[in-house]
Every structure is written in structure tokens, then in C-alpha cells.
Write a protein that binds this DNA or RNA. Structure first.
Lengths: 346, 346
DNA sequence: TTGTAAGCGTTATCAT
DNA sequence: ATGATAACGCTTACAA
């Protein structure tokens, strides 16, 4: 048990409660509550007096009392695998804003290494502690997953990361396959012929979809499979892939890399190995994080519409929470960003 | 008012409550509560039966009921000016972890453009909604500030950003002046003579302290003031400064830039203008965000010990919340990171 | 060792 | 239009 001394060093002045306002305004607490809630069953005069008193005392409702009584929380849990990744950080800004607009607060659960804490937070969905959950990776807390699979509708929405049809999670995403297809087609149009792919891990749906897009594009162009390296989305994965590629027979003309972070590592390691981008190998990434345009060379990539996804995800979730019908899937348009890293060499 | 239909599309199965466990285990609610709390005033047999029942039903305590009854929340509010900035994103990861370790949850308030929402959240400190506040910028919510200034002790800690002595906020920070001094001294030792400074805004304490460090270093070395440009900490500020500098008389040997982000913009814009770093101008930044080493050229900078600061800030706050004595200031050691951007040209 | 009951601050139902 | 009062789910004296 945690120490629970009664002598807090910060003398906690007693919070202002309804009863304090009631006394000051000379009405009952019921009337105070109604006035503050903007009910029309109060005389204008009384309401004004109450509101004045409330402001004078600096009243702030106790969220726990309200949530307990109303049996409904105004907290949305956002499950994030990695804060440090720009994708998630930016998503968070926009979710926070959208949530506030709708009258909700955002709480974060980090699903990084250890999901226990996060799962426990998510379970509060069933205890009324939180109103809904936004998933941003392929991860889904076990209890939520099993209920979802049993056909139950829950206030749970996934965004950023794609959702398999059989997962039954309301989803806000881009068309990953089409996006990958488009950017690889851009490489083809630049004149590149041997286009390899640095993919994510084979177990990840998002990686599989981006690979599928790459494959469709080279098939359509009648190009030969120049090889796939399965690694991951992090900087280090890109570095490792670069070393592997340089050790191999002959270099491809271009590489489509499934994430910008990996692309940074890839290009950076190639430079160390004396291979220059795009002169010797052209590169295209995926995500368009803020550093992509500052990178040398500036990275050609797919821009993830993070703001639109975040807002749509929140709005969808709020709609479900407040009794609407979940829509299943909704797709957000993506955008190609062509920069120097993909330019034809020579 | 928000629509509040009673027919939620997700049939909310009634949450499991203590009374459900009580029935299943054939004991009173009080005994259930005691068992789950690990009280020693319960027989082992009963406790086991209760815990078994609780797990079987998938019980999760209602946080609002607990907080209301215990008159103490387990939520820490972290006020962040900008999620997208790596500094804050990383800080958040570590705070989240440290908070969970101590049994708290983290809630985020974005103090970006509009502080109203954030202030309102912060005010919950006085209504019992949150247990304490961590500030990460110079911003401090008005009500908190005025109470602090009146000499009151509050569970409020600032980190990352320095605190003025007169602010009376418990603070976890690095020695900004010393750090700036050291990195400028490194530039001096590289042989640079005309060392300019790209500072933040004049109104910001952190900018003033870094400028002070720069000034001390060049004074000690007996160098002339090669000029200060006051802009800001963002990429765009760095770009603008680069243009201003190139338009001026003659270029300095080196520039100490008060933030890595601004340094990215500065170097990037210089490249566009045909000035190369570090060949024509050496550059040193401040922060050591994750891109700093991927940047071209890799950036010499001061590493902010984000993890240590985050953990110390949380621990300090928790100590105050739980009745300890606030320590005032505590300093975390920083570290110089020397990379190519500061190398002597020629 | 266990049960009974009061109460945390708020909202909502029922009177008046 | 307003006031009394019963919940909301939980913890914790106090009783047994």
C-alpha cells in the first residue's frame, strides 16, 4: 500500500461544491445544479445569481461525481504503440483537439513493450471509467477483441493502421494498397526498372498491404520482382536492410520502403557504405513525417492524412458512444509527395 | 445539449460491480472491497473466494466511484505546448511509464494556440478531478499561478523548461546556462572565432538562459559579439534567420542555435542559398532530438536528458501529492553530443 | 473476521 | 420555479 499521510504539505483548501454556491445564492443545491446545467426550468433571475456566485467562488464540477451519477464518462482512451514516432504524436494533437470540440478528454495508453497496463486501462470501458477507445496500431486489447469477435458492438474505433475485415472493428484508414501502388508506379514512371521493396514485418497487415500495392504496380508494368526484404518500420531496420542489400549481387534501381523512418536509416546507412541516393539508388518511403522534407535528399513518400484520420476517428467514436450506428469502414484520401529521393539517376 | 439517446447501438452489458461479486462469493460488499484491497482483516479463505469470483466476472473498479469516495484522483495532468515536437513526445513516453509505476494515469492538456481548454482541465486540481500537474513549458495556468504566487504549496511541477526563482514552482531542469556555455566553448575549441547566436524569443526564459551561456563563453574566450538573431525554436524560424544572415555583411564562422528544430531549418535554408555546413559555417544546436543524428550534416548539440527529467518530475510530483515536502529546484546532468556540424572548416 | 451503514458531489425524480 | 431526496459504486468507521 502506498503511504497515505493525512498531512499534505500543500494545505488543500476545500474544493468549492454545489452546496457552497447554494448558500451564497440562497437557493437549494438542486437549483444550483439546474442553473449551471442551463436548464430552462429556472427563472432567469435565479440563474444569473447562481452563475455569479459560482464564478465568484471559482466553482469547477467534480468530474468523478458527475461521471458516477450520470453513469457516463467523458474520457476517450487512445492506445498508442509509440509516442516518439511522429505519426502518433501528430495524430494525438488532432485527436485531442477533436475530442475537446466534442466535449471529451483524451487519455493515453502506451502499448509499447508491456500491454498489461494498457489492457487494464482499456478494461475500464466495461466499468464505466472510459467512454470509448481509439486504436492506432494492429493491437487490440484481448477483452475488447473477444467481445468484438462475438459480434458485440463496442465504442471502439481503429485508425492509422488498417483493419482486417474479420476483426469487426470500425475503422478509419487510407487505402494502403492503392497508395503503395501509386508510389511504386511513380518510380516506374521515373524510368526505374528493378524496383525492390523493403517491407515491414510479415505478421503485420499494414506491411502486407503495402507489399501488395508494390506487387500490383510492378506486375502491371511487366517488371520482374527485384526482391523483398522483410524487416520493420524503424530506423535500425532500414540500416540493416541497406547493409544486406549492398552485400548482395547487384543493386536495384530503386527501393520502395514501407515507412519513412526505415527510409531514413536505409539512406543514411547507404551513404556510410558509399552509395548515394538518388544517384545510384532511388528511394520512396511511406508516411510523410515532418522530417521527410528536411532529410537529405528530401524524401518522396505517401502523405498520411493524419489530421483527417484523427478527426474522423474521434467523430466516429463519439457518434457510437452517443448512440449512433457504426459505419464499419471509412477511407480517407491520401496524397503522393514527390521529392528528390526518387529522381531518375543519370 | 448533446444528443443523449437511450438506445446505444452497442448494447452496454451492465458493468460488474462489487455487489455482483458479493453475491457470487456469498459475502457482503464490504468484505469484497476489503479482499480486493488486500486488507489483512479478511480470512485467507474468504479472500481467495472473492478474488476468484472477481476474476471470473472480469471485475474492474469504477474509477469515478473510487476517486469520489477516496477524495483523491489518480490522474496527473501534463501540460504540453506541442505534441509534434520530439522533445515533448519523448518526455510523454517516460512520464507515462513513471506515472504507471507509481499507480497514476496521465492525461494531456494541449496548451498550443488556445489555453482555455487546458486551463479548464487544470482547474480540476481544485475540484479533485486531477491529483497534480506537470508543466513542460513556461506556461502556467492563471489560477495555479496566482495561488502559487500567494505562497501556497500546490502539487505542481515544471520540467524541461526552466523556472524563474520568483515563480515558486517546484522544478526539474538542466542547467541551461552551463549547457549553452559548454557547447559554445566547444565551438571555440574547434577554432571558430566569430560565433553568432540564433536565439529564441526574447520573452522566453529558456531563450534568455541559453543566450546568457553563449555570452559567458565568448566573453571568457575574449571573442567579439558576432551578433544575436532573436526568432524562435521552430524550423521556420531557422530558415528566416538563415536568409537574414546571408543578406548581411559577412558570415560568421559558426552559429550556436538555441534549438535543433531551428537548426534544421537554418542549415536546410543555407543549403538552398548555396552555403554549406560545416564547410562555410559551423553549427551547433540544442535538444538532441532523434533526427539530429540523421540530419545532414549530423548535428552537434546538447542532449536533453528527457527520460531522467520525466521520471524525476513524476516522482517529485507524486511525492508532493502523497504528502512529501517539495524540493524546490533539482538539476539533471546534461551531455554534449559532438557531431559533424560543428567541425572546423578548412 | 464479517456485516451494516454513512457518505463522497452530483443529477434527476418527485413533490410542492 | 424551486426544494427535498434518492441514487451512482465504492470505502471505511463502527457494530457485531
Amino acid at each position: 500500500m502506498r503511504s497515505n499521510s493525512k498531512t499534505n504539505s500543500w494545505e488543500a483548501s476545500r474544493p468549492v461544491k454545489l452546496v457552497d454556491i447554494a448558500k451564497l445564492a440562497n437557493v437549494s443545491i438542486a437549483t444550483v445544479s439546474r442553473s449551471l446545467a442551463g436548464s430552462d426550468r429556472v427563472s432567469n433571475d435565479t440563474r444569473d445569481r447562481v452563475i455569479f456566485a459560482a464564478e465568484k467562488l471559482g466553482y469547477r464540477a467534480n468530474r468523478h461525481a458527475v461521471s458516477l451519477r450520470k453513469q457516463r464518462s467523458r474520457v476517450i482512451l487512445v492506445m498508442i504503440p509509440d509516442f516518439a514516432n511522429h505519426n502518433f504524436a501528430q495524430l494525438l494533437i488532432h485527436m485531442d483537439r477533436a475530442a475537446h470540440r466534442a466535449g471529451y478528454e483524451v487519455m493515453i495508453a502506451h502499448t509499447g513493450d508491456d500491454t498489461l497496463q494498457a489492457d487494464s486501462l482499456a478494461d475500464e470501458l466495461f466499468a464505466g471509467g472510459i467512454a470509448g477507445i481509439i486504436l492506432t496500431s494492429s493491437y487490440c486489447p484481448p477483452r475488447v477483441r473477444s467481445l468484438l469477435l462475438s459480434g458485440k458492438q463496442l465504442p471502439v474505433v481503429r485508425t492509422l493502421s488498417p483493419t482486417g475485415r474479420d476483426e469487426r472493428i470500425t475503422s478509419v484508414q487510407i487505402d494502403e494498397i492503392a497508395a503503395a501502388d501509386e508510389i511504386v508506379t511513380h518510380l516506374v514512371e521515373q524510368g526505374h526498372r528493378r524496383i525492390a521493396h523493403l517491407a515491414g514485418e510479415k505478421t503485420q497487415l499494414v506491411a502486407m498491404q503495402r507489399e501488395e500495392g508494390w506487387r500490383r504496380s510492378i506486375d502491371r508494368a511487366g517488371l520482374k520482382d527485384a526482391g523483398v526484404i522483410y524487416r520493420g518500420f524503424r530506423v535500425e531496420d532500414g540500416r540493416a536492410a541497406a547493409r544486406e542489400l549492398v552485400e548482395g549481387e547487384d543493386l536495384p534501381d530503386a527501393v520502395f520502403i514501407a515507412s519513412d523512418s526505415a527510409a531514413f536509416g536505409f539512406v543514411s546507412e547507404l551513404r556510410l557504405l558509399g552509395v548515394s541516393v538518388p544517384d545510384q539508388i532511388a528511394v520512396a518511403g511511406f508516411d510523410d513525417v515532418s522530417f521527410s522534407e528536411l532529410f537529405t535528399p528530401p524524401l518522396t513518400t505517401v502523405h498520411l492524412p493524419r489530421q483527417a484520420m484523427a478527426e474522423r476517428a474521434v467523430d466516429t467514436l463519439v457518434a457510437i458512444i452517443e448512440g449512433g450506428e457504426p459505419e464499419g469502414y471509412s477511407f480517407i484520401p491520401h496524397r503522393l509527395v514527390v521529392r528528390e529521393s526518387s529522381f531518375r539517376h543519370g
